[in-house]
């Protein structure tokens, strides 16, 4: 039984990983490779029928960048649905992930992770 819903979702997630937006790239470079609290973090991760921008499975945290900046689509998870699945959902905007504000967001995320 696949964790993704269909081949298309898997391919779509893969395509999205290859075309990250600038804010996504900035956040990913801060989180990837176990750099953030040694945690394993996934980008563009399928959850049910949706694709979340970033997921920290060990802490059940999903980061969904505000769709104004990443584009909406059927894949974009409604935060309320993820919350009902038990995820803590963070919804930064693109401005929150700009080079000068990114450390603030990471501090906020750090608090959520260590809670």
């Amino acid at each position: 039984m696949p964790a993704y819903r269909s081949d298309t979702q898997r391919l779509h997630a893969r395509a999205q990983r290859a075309e990250l937006t600038q804010p996504e790239k900035a956040l990913w470079s801060a989180l990837r490779n176990h750099r953030f609290h040694g945690l394993s973090i996934r980008r563009k991760s399928p959850i049910g029928p949706w694709i979340a921008d970033f997921v920290i499975p060990a802490r059940r945290i999903a980061i969904c960048i505000h769709p104004e900046t990443t584009g909406t689509g059927q894949d974009h998870p409604p935060p309320s649905a993820l919350e009902r699945l038990g995820y803590t959902v963070l919804r930064p905007s693109a401005a929150d992930l700009a080079p000068d504000t990114l450390p603030l967001f990471l501090r906020h995320l750090s608090r959520k992770v260590t809670q």
């Binding site: 696949p2 964790a3 993704y4 819903r5 959850i47 049910g48 029928p49 499975p57 699945l85």
Partner: peptide
């Protein structure tokens, strides 16, 4: 169905995390 609530439609079972949680759509 976890999305539309249909009780009479055929469902796909989808895993939603690493702990084996699942939803039906």
């Amino acid at each position: 169905c976890d999305l539309c609530g249909a009780s009479d439609s055929y469902l796909d079972e989808v895993i939603t995390d690493d702990r084996g949680s699942r939803m039906y759509v």
